[in-house]
Design a binder for these strands. Structure first.
Length: 791
DNA sequence: AACGTCACG
DNA sequence: ACGTACGTGACGTTG
């Protein structure tokens, strides 16, 4: 009742001053305040919409058949759990209401009981009689205080015009973005006017713009698009306009591309390699243009790539975020979003038009911003010694990856369907078996339900827990295998389910009906280490470890008259590690072409190299992996199913033997702590703020990332260099072979049969000479008629 | 939207 | 006493 005290008193005060008082409240307890002049406005939800009802004294009487203040008595009997008002146990809303309607008040009720005139009987009467104290106490608790001392006068409460820019500032600070729209606060910033003067808006016709671009040998632009989502998972995005910035005059232009062939008028410009293209997300631009039969040439500066190199863990690389980060410009302030709620409909300027205008303004601003962000980022790239990485590796990679996506990979849909049918049949059978073994039907995909079956119904031992329940992952199930035969079936079911949903049904949706190929996206600005990532679909995680899954690869085939040429770097990460750590033993092993895991086994287990067992080698391999990941005793122990003590012995022995690696590991964590970041061989940087965390776990993670990033990242750099070399050589020689896939240490080219020997040489040569390390780089090449056959 | 699981390097 | 191997993306369930 505390919060209510003031407004209870204030409402009465207002009434006394002769005002019509309205109380806004979500709490029906306030109805007790209603009079002829005091109205309570309360929201209620009706079919998703929230409306308000108004209750004055009349409405209260209509609704409850009681005077407002009698509602206090109702509450006294009924109680209110949320307000900690006990009421009389066993008396609810209905009873309380009818009792007060009958007796008028709690006092009268108990008077009647005293005189035995109440007419109540049984349990109910007993409860009421026994809880008299509670009833009176509850009434007191439920009464809104009307006598709080007030020192303010009406004048103090007068509503004044509020400081809108200030409120905007506060809302922005608190991320109250919805409120900013609701109160139409966009564009309230004080410096709004200044920013608008940043550039001149000039209407120019196409030919004038083209002349300027040619003169400048530079095209600073932003491509506007619209999307229509087709039923298939293939997004059809169309170019709707282009905006330009012309730095010499500080002018922006926008041209609309509304008709189908209009984009062709720009073909000459886009395909002119002499004109340096400066934009954002140029890989996307490349694809959009390619769809129109235009090949983007002269890819010069992509501001999202620049920002990525400056900080690869930056996940906000869209134009508006970059403007905020690098120019401290907030788009919404300069070009307010139209508030469609309070919009006045105007015949001559309808909402659609206004929105279109607003968008055009934004596109112009974007083009200007791209130029300014280029200036900023280029300076910073220089400062952090990353300009070469940017110009020689990541920018050229844009074209390589774009081309790769445009090429796509052919998929035999019929064969994929066949595989799908096979899986479905097996899946149906195994589902029945599982139901039978469990003794009931349940959703096997639900870890919650599965957990209940396994650990509650069947009482299997709980190996591991997750945040929200029992863990049922492979590791757990493998350990439970011997407990019950159902486990094996579940593992089988999981495998089949994964294959069918992700790799059959999932992949199907991405086959382009026109090309019969899958054109996966290859993203260059996602990973923290510099690797490429692939989406829609992810072609970098097509199964290979198990035979059944590997069959998915059979449906990926080269076109008629072509073959796949596939090249794999052998042990690239360990070679990189050997080279940057300068460990003499590992370098020697690679120079001599030794089996690196076998050598590690020999050293760790102190066994002559010829006597190393399979198991020793496999354990040593795990240690090698662990080293690359930034070893931890726990992790290695878990991986090998040995205790962490044993794991520590392995690690200690390993680091004893490979002392160069030991030194590298401790040096790199030290460097990372000191300078706050680590670098690859080509100066790709990753900041590791985790190392400064107060949390031990987070710091440990930081240390592992510090050890892993130079290794994984350098390998990624090398692969990019190799791809650029291959791409350029192919292009220069006018070969028809096309790179179609990259999987971190693997590159695949679709090759017309007549080019195959030439391509084999090119791949081998480009990959192995991508960089001069202290150890040789080896690329293993295989050719095949489908992906499955690639070794 | 977050989580658990599992596919890859 | 904590509770982890590094880097990704997609799917299905659940809140």
């Amino acid at each position: 009742m505390k919060q209510m005290m003031c407004f209870g008193t204030l409402s009465r005060y207002g009434e006394k001053q002769g005002l019509e008082v309205t109380i806004l409240s979500g709490d029906r307890d306030t109805f007790q305040l209603a009079t002829d002049n005091i109205t309570i406005r309360i929201p209620h939800t009706k079919g998703g919409k929230t409306e308000t009802d108004e209750y004055n004294r009349k409405k209260v009487i209509e609704t409850y058949g009681l005077e407002p203040k009698q509602l206090i008595d109702v509450k006294g009997l009924q109680g209110d759990a949320s307000d900690n008002i006990p009421g009389v146990p066993g008396v609810g809303e209905k009873t309380a209401l009818s009792l007060i309607q009958k007796f008028g008040s709690i006092e009268n009720l108990y008077d009647a009981i005293e005189k035995d005139e109440d007419g109540l009987k049984g349990k109910q009467r007993e409860k009421i009689v026994n809880n008299k104290d509670l009833a009176f106490m509850s009434k007191t608790l439920g009464t809104i205080n009307l006598e709080v001392p007030i020192t303010d006068t009406l004048e103090n409460f007068k509503v004044e015009e509020w400081d809108r820019p200030k409120v905007l500032e506060i809302f922005k600070d608190l991320n109250f973005n919805r409120y900013i729209d609701r109160f139409s606060l966009r564009g309230e910033a004080e410096n709004k006017e200044d920013i608008k003067e940043l550039y001149k808006k000039v209407d120019k016709i196409k030919n004038e713009i083209i002349e300027l671009i040619k003169k400048q040998k530079e095209m600073i632009f932003y491509i506007a698009t619209s999307t229509d989502n087709l039923p298939e998972k293939i997004i059809k995005e169309k170019i709707t306009g282009i905006s330009f910035y012309y730095p010499e005059q500080n002018e922006v232009y926008y041209v609309e591309i509304s008709e189908d062939d209009q984009i062709q008028e720009w073909k000459e410009i886009f395909e002119n390699a002499e004109i340096k293209k400066i934009g954002i997300d140029l890989s996307k631009v490349y694809i959009l243009l390619k769809q129109e039969g235009i090949t983007l040439e002269g890819i010069g500066y992509d501001v999202s790539i620049a920002a990525y190199i400056l900080n690869p863990t930056n996940n906000k690389l869209n134009i508006e975020s970059l403007m905020e980060q690098y120019l401290e410009i907030n788009c919404d302030e300069i070009i307010p979003k139209k508030d469609t709620n309070t919009q006045q409909m105007n015949l001559f300027d309808n909402i659609d038009n206004q929105e279109a205008e607003e968008k055009k303004e934004r596109y112009k601003l974007y083009a200007y911003a791209i130029s300014k962000i280029q200036e900023k980022t280029e300076k910073k790239l220089e400062e952090v010694n990353c300009l070469e990485l940017f110009n020689e590796i990541d920018m050229p990679t844009v074209e390589v990856l774009s081309d790769m996506q445009a090429n796509g990979m052919y998929v035999d849909e019929e064969e994929l369907n066949e595989f799908g049918k096979e899986l479905t049949i097996k899946l149906d059978a195994i589902t029945k078996i599982i139901y039978e073994m469990a003794g009931e039907e349940f959703n096997i995909n639900s870890t919650k339900q599965l957990g209940q079956i396994l650990f509650e119904k069947m009482k299997l031992p709980i190996i591991k827990k997750t945040k929200s329940g029992y863990s049922t992952d492979v590791d757990v199930l493998e350990k439970l295998k011997k407990e019950d035969p159902i486990i094996e079936q579940i593992l089988e079911y999981r495998q089949l389910m994964k294959l069918n949903s992700t790799y059959v049904e999932g992949l199907k949706q991405y086959i382009n009906p026109k090309t019969k190929r899958i054109h996966s996206f290859f993203h260059q600005t996602i990973t923290a280490t510099g690797r490429i990532s692939s989406t829609e679909p992810n072609l970098q995680n097509i199964p290979t470890r198990f035979e059944l899954g590997k069959r998915v690869r059979k449906v990926f085939k080269p076109a008629e008259g072509k073959i796949y040429m596939d090249a794999d770097y052998s042990q690239i990460e360990l070679r990189v590690l050997a080279s940057i750590s300068e460990d003499e033993h590992m370098i020697q092993a690679f120079k001599e072409g030794q089996d690196i895991h076998k050598q590690a086994a020999s050293k760790v287990f102190k066994t002559p190299i010829d006597e190393v067992t399979k198991e020793q080698r496999s354990n040593a391999k795990a240690v090698n992996f662990g080293i690359v990941y930034g070893i931890s005793e726990f992790g290695l122990g878990e991986q090998l199913g040995i205790g962490r003590k044993k794991a520590k012995e392995y690690i200690d022995e390993y680091l004893q033997q490979y002392s160069g690696i030991k030194k590298f590991m401790s040096d790199i964590t030290e460097i990372a702590k000191e300078q706050g970041y680590v670098e690859t061989l080509f100066h790709r940087r990753r900041y590791i703020p985790e190392l400064k965390s107060n949390n031990y776990m987070v710091r440990q993670f930081g240390a592992r990332a510090a050890m892993n990033t130079p290794i994984q990242g350098t390998a990624a750099d090398i692969m990019k260099i190799a791809m650029i070399k291959v791409y350029r050589k192919n292009k220069k020689r006018g070969l028809k072979s096309k790179i179609v896939l990259q999987v971190h240490d693997e590159m695949m080219i679709e090759v017309p049969i007549e080019e195959k020997e030439e391509i084999r040489k090119i791949m081998k040569e480009c990959m192995e000479s991508a960089v001069q390390l202290k150890v040789p780089l080896i690329a293993e090449i295989s050719e095949a008629t489908n992906w499955y056959e690639c070794k």
